[in-house]
Design a protein around this nucleic acid. Structure first.
Length: 211
DNA sequence: GAATCGATGATCT
DNA sequence: GATCATCGATTCA
């Protein structure tokens, strides 16, 4: 079980409009490497948060570069933005847009492709076919499964701990919907997911318009 | 399958 | 002091 991690996507991939990056991340593979081992999953669901969008952490003090927590969203693209929420869960985002423009993509769900046993141990699950779907189906779950912690805040997405790679997979169809769990900005269709993919997190809005 | 609710702590006002 | 880009247990069906 010694996975060889391929070359990661370049910084330029992230230095673009956040919604475009969120959409193009679908099908890419996210790797986490730590002392426990290597885990990886194919990204099947993302959300875009950008600029002064009221749903985005970057909307507050937007003119002056954001609150302390969100200031990383105004910085260099291609790094991880990790934050802690509900007293229990980490959330993993990728910083987007050129430096000075605020943006980040929330990674919401993965299809496990490497290190499933380790993921199951971290999630305290067995490895039935059923639970395999549940391993990383949701932003809190995937951070648990991969071992994403606050210490990864600011980490590069080209290693040595976090990698995002492209194996050539192209989703057959992509769907969009409102974002999940927010109060403001609910009209914006900035949630992207691979159509009919069973690893996409459960939500009442799974039957939204395709494109 | 769907609805409800408590856990638990950092962040912001 | 209120809010929160969530989850799992519980209940009802």
């Amino acid at each position: 079980m010694s996975a060889r991690i391929p070359r990661a996507l370049p910084k330029a991939f992230y230095k673009r409009h956040t919604a475009l990056v969120a959409k193009e991340l679908l099908g890419k593979i996210l790797w986490l490497k730590d002392r426990s081992g290597i885990t990886a999953g194919r990204i099947v669901e993302t959300e875009a948060y950008r600029g002064d969008d009221p749903a985005s952490h970057s909307s507050k003090q937007h003119q002056s570069g954001g609150t302390p927590r969100a200031s990383i969203m105004f910085g260099e693209p291609g790094v991880a933005y990790v934050y802690f929420i509900y007293g229990m869960y980490e959330m993993l985002n990728f910083v987007t847009e050129p430096k000075g423009e605020a943006g980040a993509v929330l990674v919401r769900a993965l299809e496990p492709v490497e290190g499933e046993a380790l993921m199951a141990r971290r999630r305290k699950h067995g490895l039935t076919q059923r639970s395999r779907i549940e391993l990383a189906r949701g932003p809190g779950k995937l951070c648990r499964a991969l071992g994403v912690r606050m210490k990864h805040n600011g980490a590069q997405l080209r290693g040595p701990e976090i990698f995002v790679t492209d194996d050539g997979f192209v989703p057959a169809s992509i769907s969009v919907s409102p974002r999940v769990g927010i109060r403001a900005g609910t009209e914006t269709l900035h949630r992207f997911f691979i159509t009919d993919n069973p690893f996409v997190s459960r939500s009442p809005q799974n039957r939204e318009a395709r494109r």
